[in-house]
Write a protein that binds this DNA or RNA. Sequence first.
DNA 1: CTGAAAGCGCTTACAG
DNA 2: CTGAAAGCGCTTACAG
Lengths: 342, 342
Amino acid sequence: MQTTASSRSQIPTLRAVAELAGVSTSTASRVITGSPQVTEDSVARVTAAIAELGYVPNRAARSLVRRQPQTIAMMIPERTAEFFADPYFAEVIQGAAAYASSTDYSLTLLIESESDPEKTHQVLSRGNVGGALILSHHSASEAYFTLSRSLPVVFGVRPPGGEDADIHVVDVDNVAAAALAAGHLVERGAVRVATITAPLDTSAGRERLQGWRDTLESAGLAPGGWEEGDYTPAGGAAAMRRLLERADTFDAVFVASAQMASGALGVLQSRGVRVPEDVAIATLDNNYFSTSTTPPLTTVDLHTEEKGAMMVQALVRLIEGATVDTEVFVPITLVERESTAL
Amino acid sequence: MQTTASSRSQIPTLRAVAELAGVSTSTASRVITGSPQVTEDSVARVTAAIAELGYVPNRAARSLVRRQPQTIAMMIPERTAEFFADPYFAEVIQGAAAYASSTDYSLTLLIESESDPEKTHQVLSRGNVGGALILSHHSASEAYFTLSRSLPVVFGVRPPGGEDADIHVVDVDNVAAAALAAGHLVERGAVRVATITAPLDTSAGRERLQGWRDTLESAGLAPGGWEEGDYTPAGGAAAMRRLLERADTFDAVFVASAQMASGALGVLQSRGVRVPEDVAIATLDNNYFSTSTTPPLTTVDLHTEEKGAMMVQALVRLIEGATVDTEVFVPITLVERESTAL
DNA sequence: CTGAAAGCGCTTACAG
DNA sequence: CTGAAAGCGCTTACAG
């Protein structure tokens, strides 16, 4: 109590800035909000006063008067397993938080209640957040369709059923990413390219499968075998075992995520299959799972951190009334490593 | 703009609640804040009105008048690698966010600028957060010592140099956790227990080594060999390779984190060492890395998610002026799995 | 126990 | 371009 009180009294207000600068709070406020209707002289004096006092606007007061909380909610899935296993969320969050810190908005974490989507809706629609970022793949995201009519919302994945809906999505082009990885395998000389897919009940899973298929087709190659994984190393390993049991052999495999690829690589090596000599591997995600294996894996960097930043950027624009494309693609880049070396 | 405006007009205010309940806003406010000086009848009527309107207090207004932002900052390390590789942060964050949602506080993510701690200090001390949670191990956390004099702060790890400082720490008892795991190995009959440590420039690393040492000593066993790891599977694997090169053999190993244990296990198996028959393994962290290996690993659950919740709980108490222990221990539990089966 | 009133720290028409 | 004034939605002494 005492600590708090004493610290509070130190914090400079707009009034203090205005007094020091010798202007009214109105003028000081105009300078701070970047209003054009102020003289250069006012700007200089207020700016100096702000610097001298280390003034930072009170968010609560600003939010109250603007009727617009300077807060963005990042909805994170309640189902912990999904959230934990994957560095994906951490990267998106990191990127989003970093970008948010460069804006006037703060990023707050909200658990989405999957058992009770109505509750989540409540929390978001009651005026305490300026907009929301939706990350989950599977969840009952239809609830967010309605929400996005009354609150700015940006999705990190196109939600199931959201093909026609008037929603905003910031995501990687999964077809293109898969095609980039598979294409690299083909260019390198592979002629029998198998794949381990991401879960096919997600759009990302289906699109990555599609990208692989398209690539082989346009290269005039017959599609190789494919098995479904679940985004985990163990799932990738299991899929690789099934792939090896099949009649059709392969000289390369496109694995739809680095976590799965690390598991699949282990199986290959335990069977004495040499990578890249016998089987080349290309995957997606430039993270720990593609850099720390032996050999390290050729992959497509999905720029997940940048994705987080782009989501916040799109949302802030939406909140501030600017026009935002309904679909924004996050850049992708091929990173060549030993797993496809010649 | 239009969307936003229309949605705003829907949001019920305290005044609307008061009118519906037939009381003044003062009384309505008292009911909401749980003041004792209201009649049962008032409580009933206001409560009903709140439910009917779906009223949620405006955080900005409340923060403004209370001079206390209803916001808790979770400081996350700028150094991305550390943050990404480990499910630890994600678990703590999840637990913290979930607990925060049951309070009046919202959890906001702030990147701590390690290159410029002064900047982080600025952000926190300028009155826009009610308190802060500090997670990082290494960082220049001394800056937070000063901060904790003017702002409620809870550390997730005792910062270097923070032995005597008057700070609040919520953490697992690392010595006890290591002793629990190592003790299980001993009870099971191991007589030559080696260890792979966490980085020894962290207090957690040193304490876990200590717990292993204490256990062997009190069991009357000579300390086995030890090698330092870096919290990653690759680091655990490297440490295990070094351990195997040493003269002293071992029939069990305590690995100070599950990520390292998964790497170490791989090395053992690739050398034809059977787990648990030839070497038993016990580790810390009950996460993906201890459950998904073959065999699954006996471990000490550090209740990381609960830790996040406890950190928020302690911080909220601090903010609200209650007394909080300077040191709070997160519970630990042994989880027996195949890696130590007899 | 209750209500009228003041005020938290800002922003923004409004008048000049 | 500038300042005085009103007001954002709450909470809390103050008086009754």
